[in-house]
Amino acid sequence: MKRLMIAVFTLACFTLTATAQESGRTDGAEGSEYGKGGNPFGYSAGRIYLSGAFGSGFFGPSSQTQTGFLYGVDLGYEAYEWIGVQASYAHLTDRDTDIFSLGTNFCYEWRPFVYNLSLQAGVYDQDIAGRHFGLAPGAGLDIVLGEKVRLGINYKHDFIFTDNRTTDLDRVYASLKFYF
């Protein structure tokens, strides 16, 4: 799983380099404007972000559970202002659950707020139940604190597919996101 995370991060870095576009100037040598352009005042496409998260998670009502402390980290790449990919790790103290997931993020920016919808798939590694696959749709609201910092509140509902049934997990957490 660690190798997968490293591969995703490396891929995101290469993609960022490939899509970066310089503004350029018109007072250089003739032809120096080739390949330059973009919108220097708007959104800079191709940004990597790192987000720290903390909150709580609780398994569905059918499970023997107690609310656990949740912490984690998200590493994402926004290809455009409305879509990106994200790799996440989260740890829930209840059942000693590790969650490794990968998925897409859809954003709509209405400053100072940014609304997020996400869908992630991943591995849920539980101390007592072993490893299982699951899906996690989610929604969130970020507040833009600065060009490179956002504070958010998020909700995710996890469907963990086990042998005989689907286990539900709700996650509510705050996040602090830094863009590079």
Partner: peptide
């Protein structure tokens, strides 16, 4: 700077 390229 007016000579900065901007293609909006």
């Amino acid at each position: 700077d007016p000579e900065t390229i901007a293609l909006l």
